[in-house]
């Protein structure tokens, strides 16, 4: 491999790792969002139950 390819590899590795990391965080965020929605639903139903 030429020197240039090594440089590209180094930057590429960093990029990929950061990308994977961001993807993991994004996946977590989606999960959190879903949970939050569930809880909102639960709270709403409970509030509705109390009112009626």
């Amino acid at each position: 491999m030429s020197q240039g390819q090594y440089v590209a590899a180094a930057y590429g590795v960093v990029f990929v790792v950061v990308l994977v990391y961001v993807a993991i965080i994004a996946a977590k965020l989606v999960r959190l969002e879903r949970e939050a929605a569930e809880l909102v639903e639960l709270a709403r139903r409970r509030a509705g139950g109390n009112a009626s």
Binding site: Q3, Y6, V7, A9, A10, V13, V14, V17
Partner: peptide
């Protein structure tokens, strides 16, 4: 570690 290793190789 990874970039350092690549640098060492280069």
């Amino acid at each position: 570690l990874i970039t350092g290793s690549i640098w060492a190789k280069a």
